[in-house]
């Protein structure tokens, strides 16, 4: 074997996926050829440099990922509530929907025939068990519909996440924010369903950590918070602001097994700082 043929196969020898028994002739040539040994060594050095040159991501990638995940979980939960799985979406939905409509129509006729002659000012006295059950089922359906409509209205009031974020950012940019704006930020921190928005609200509140109401708001938000990333930022806030009121809460958090390990450690560190 000559050097030219061997050199073409050297990258394959370096590859860990190549069978150790493969290319016996190249290996034999390599054992006795100083030129190919240099070539082989250079390739290994290049590969090692390629490994070492891979940079590490900044902590922003992790922070952004978990904020995005929280956002997605919230959206998925909202979608699940807004669009409960219906039997009509099943394979037999096309058959069930008209059948149920017909049954409802018949039930309507029956109820109409039974109570149609009763004076409208007085409520009918229902003595028949079957009718009572039917009425109870109808009331339950109406109740469920009301809940669903109520939830949808609440979602509309809250607006999409990006609009809420814009509001938080506008509030944060106010040069001398009044008590109302600070209140809005504290409310967003405590109640907004998006971790991303809660983080931005907290970021904005940092500039006002000397305000007792802000510190109290942050301490109040801490036990409500479920997201470890936001918990860590909240702990960082109370430690930086030297908010001693948070000490009993941090003490509890440092011993709470259900919390993330990093959150417990951060609570311990913050306690030492206070």
């Amino acid at each position: 074997m000559n050097c030219e043929t061997a050199a073409a196969l050297l990258p394959e020898l370096i590859d860990a996926r190549t069978d150790a028994a493969a290319h016996v002739e190249v290996r034999q040539h390599l054992a006795h050829c100083p030129h190919c040994q240099r070539e082989f060594s250079d390739l290994r050095r290049t590969l090692a440099a390629l490994e070492e040159a891979a940079p590490l991501p900044s902590s922003a990638l992790r922070r952004n990922f978990y904020a995005m995940l929280e956002e997605e979980k919230h959206s998925a939960a909202s979608a699940a509530v807004a669009r409960p799985r219906s039997i009509f979406s099943s394979r037999w939905g096309w058959l069930l929907a008209p059948a149920l409509a017909a049954i409802t129509l018949l039930a309507g006729f029956q109820l109409g025939a039974r109570f149609g002659t009763t004076p409208p000012a007085t409520a009918p006295v229902v003595t028949d068990d079957a009718t009572r059950r039917e009425l109870a089922a109808l009331r339950q359906q109406v109740g469920q519909m009301s809940q669903l409509v109520g939830y949808s209205l609440l979602q509309q009031q809250q607006g999409p996440a990006n609009e809420r974020l814009r509001e938080v950012l506008v509030a944060a940019q106010a040069e001398k924010p009044g008590a109302k704006i600070l209140d809005e930020l504290i409310v967003a921190l405590a109640f907004d369903p998006s971790a991303n928005i809660r983080l931005r609200a907290l970021e904005a509140l940092y500039a006002h950590s000397d305000n007792a109401a802000v510190r109290a708001g942050v301490v109040a938000a801490l036990p409500r918070e479920q997201n470890p990333l936001v918990q860590l930022e909240l702990i960082d806030f109370v430690a930086t602001a030297r908010e001693r009121e948070a000490a009993p809460l941090l003490e509890r958090m440092s011993r709470e097994d259900s919390l993330d390990q990093s959150v417990r450690a951060a609570a311990r560190r913050a306690l030492a700082q206070l």
């Binding site: 990258p11 394959e12 590859d15 590969l47």
Partner: peptide
């Protein structure tokens, strides 16, 4: 493998 050679 050719790309590794070129990089080298």
């Amino acid at each position: 493998h050719r790309a590794l050679g070129e990089l080298r």
